[in-house]
Design a protein around this nucleic acid. Structure first.
Lengths: 152, 152
DNA sequence: AATCAATAGTTACGATTGTAACCAATATAA
DNA sequence: TTATATTGGTTACAATCGTAACTATTGATT
């Protein structure tokens, strides 16, 4: 096929991107259909819900590698939906402490079940062995990210 | 940390996306700086260059999982740059056969070297073992994609 | 204090994207 | 034939995104 040493099919950024998109899109289809959630919204909800405490917008961004503005917009729309409320920090009024409302908690719980089911589905698609190989590989990248992290 | 079974940190779509973004961004920084190429442009160039033959826009899209319109725009700008030329199909004039010009080939070759260096850098960041685990895992996803492929 | 720098978050704006509608050419079928 | 459907590719338009500029607040420096 190719005439030289380089093979696009073996190029890691290419492969990772393709795989990530495939896996993400199938899940996004679910929460979009059932909850009319966008990706940044789901990510924000997940960050808050899974941490189990209130967080600032900046924390959410760092945690989920989303841009400030994305977080800001997602927070706004989750607030509109009454899934999230802001509380100002008494000591430093620049901060906003964001927390899920009971409705938000409930939504998170339901989405969490969707997510767990999806994860299980993926596991059965890949098989235990390949899944754990993937996990090992991803862990290595996560390690590398922490080291050389200029952060997106 | 979390109060329930679900852990965002272990959720595959989340982890894959994070990793893919990290890996892609560091490479994109290189070709953007050196060649003022956008991501869809690089992907189109790579698809054409690595196949070593002329392709139609649809083929490029299928190969690199890019939307029609993205391909269309990338093709247009590569054409402006004289890195790519179109040839119409005599039998079926709907098709456009896209091929790299000598200048395009040259650019592809240079970018290919960048890419190979980057791949090597990644390998040394992850180590041989983790890299091959990652590759195994990705291969499993690629397999799954081929099966259930509704294609993005 | 008064000034300057830094930080949290929002927003205006330009760029990039995808959906849907479109044009052109070919294939199918009446 | 002449409809009708399909397919390759482009484009108008609306939505989404990120950069950069902004507001507000706090911290540091004088």
């Amino acid at each position: 096929m190719a005439r030289d040493g380089f093979e696009l099919e073996n190029f890691l950024p290419y492969r990772l991107n393709r795989a990530a998109e495939f896996v993400a899109l199938r899940f996004a289809a679910q929460y979009k259909a059932r909850y009319q959630l966008t990706r940044p919204e789901w990510r924000t909800l997940a960050a808050l819900g899974s941490s189990g405490r209130s967080m600032t917008a900046t924390e959410i961004g760092a945690h989920s590698t989303m841009h400030k503005t994305k977080v800001s917009r997602a927070v706004f729309s989750l607030e509109q939906r009454r899934w999230l409320k802001r509380e100002e920090d008494g000591r430093d009024r620049r901060f906003e402490h964001l927390a899920l409302t009971p409705a938000g908690e409930q939504a998170y719980k339901e989405l969490t079940e969707l997510a767990s089911r999806y994860q299980a589905e993926l596991l059965s698609m890949l098989g235990t062995e390949d899944m754990s190989a993937l996990s090992t590989g991803l862990r290595a990248i996560e390690r590398a990210m922490r080291k050389s992290a200029p952060e997106a």
